[in-house]
Design a protein around this nucleic acid. Sequence first.
DNA 1: GAGTTTGAAACT
DNA 2: CAGTTTCAAACTC
Length: 498
Amino acid sequence: MFITKKTPVSSAAPIKFIVTKAVNSKGPQTSVAPVIAGRVLTQTSPLMTPRTITLTESHNTSIPGKKIAISPLKTPSKNIKPVQPVAVGGVSSSQFKTIIPLATQPNVQQIQVPGSRFHYVRLVTATTASGPSTSSVQTAKPMSTGAVRMSVPIVQAKTVKQMMAPKPLPSAAHVVTSPQTQQRLIMPATPLTQIQPNFANLPPGTVLAPAPGGGNMGYAVVPAQYVTQLQQNPFVTLASSSAFPPLTGVQTQARLPLNGFPAPESTSRPRKPCNCTKSQCLKLYCDCFANGEFCSNCNCNNCFNNLEHETERLKAIKTCLDRNPEAFKPKIGKGKEGESDRRHSKGCNCKRSGCLKNYCECYEAKIMCSSICKCIGCKNFEESPERKTLMHLADAAEVRVQQQTAAKTKLSSQISDLLTRTAPVMSSGGGRLPYTFVTKEVLEATCECLMEKAKRAEQTRQSQAEAERMVLEEFGHCLMRIISSAAKAKTDCDSVNC
DNA sequence: GAGTTTGAAACT
DNA sequence: CAGTTTCAAACTC
């Protein structure tokens, strides 16, 4: 049941995969592209100890049963052979083809699935990240060593039988089945609209078939981008949805340009921290939990939505799914034909807000209410004058913000430029000096020279005016020496193309 | 920032 | 399924 099926193999360890989506990937993926988002497949049982698994490719390729090749980072493409994409329903075949260490994360491996737009990434110990021909991979370290297991509420395993064919799936948390008992759950790595579920586009929440002999474990899938966080923070969370569009759909919507300006929403916007006090962040009241994220930098009290309370968290996830199997699916999905592209899956029930305040989930998602809404006094429809007025006001406000941002950027640029211009310049060539020469040591030496000059003036009983003249003259000499040194350094530097 | 309003989620 | 309660976010002052 659910994610936490335990393998009969007693030594099973946390095993993590990240399903990532390549940047600008189109069609079968034959090279390693930068990873921008994804999900980590992670075994969620907290009691597992490290173990090694072997991923075999049972798909009918030229080498039957060929095991995974692990290619060195620098030559990933050499080890990736295009393979005919396999439909998602063909989950009886493990299609992991190549494991490639990520460039920036030595203990992360990419698993290339031929024909897939996803990159599967796997956390491994650093010592096992290489080894181009090995067929087994050391799994990530267990929690106690600092590695982090992450899990997300996804879908009930009992729904596995629902998905057999590689048809396009309309929403998250779809499941495919396999004749085996092991389950691997995958959440969407990109906005759902970008994921089309042939195997090349694993649908969110897909339960991948286990590799033969893979045991009984289930795997949740979390964003690959968090791998970086994982390695920086032992208690990294799944929050910070900058490149990880949350599942609500609210943040995944495409925003149209405003008055010719590109919508700023295209850039990342961190999820808001929650402020839960009573729910322990284990109920759907909590946005973090509802989005399948751990709490991070939140203001919540008595938070259980973290790795330290994974048992409770998993239990809460199960409770939610028992109550509503769709609980973690995006609320904003595709509408029926003829209706708007996006609509609330359940519809809202607003009574007093006129559906024109953010209390309304439809309005918050910037979509109009639909026929399935049960709202009273709804003003959130196409022709609503109130809605139009609000939209215009919102647009105007947004344009103002953009203009202010642009002005700030310009000012910042000008200040930066000014600072650069005021940097030391060479007296001879007029070019900028390659280094800052007025270092602390130079200053100290200059001061010593000036003090020495002043002392000498005093010893020779010079008048104050003459003493000042001598000091200033010495200061001029010092400056000349500094400039001369700088010019020489610049010349030397130029000669060696530094 | 405190208090109020709101509607989804949870509960009965 | 409907009514009620709980909860946290949105909103107002």
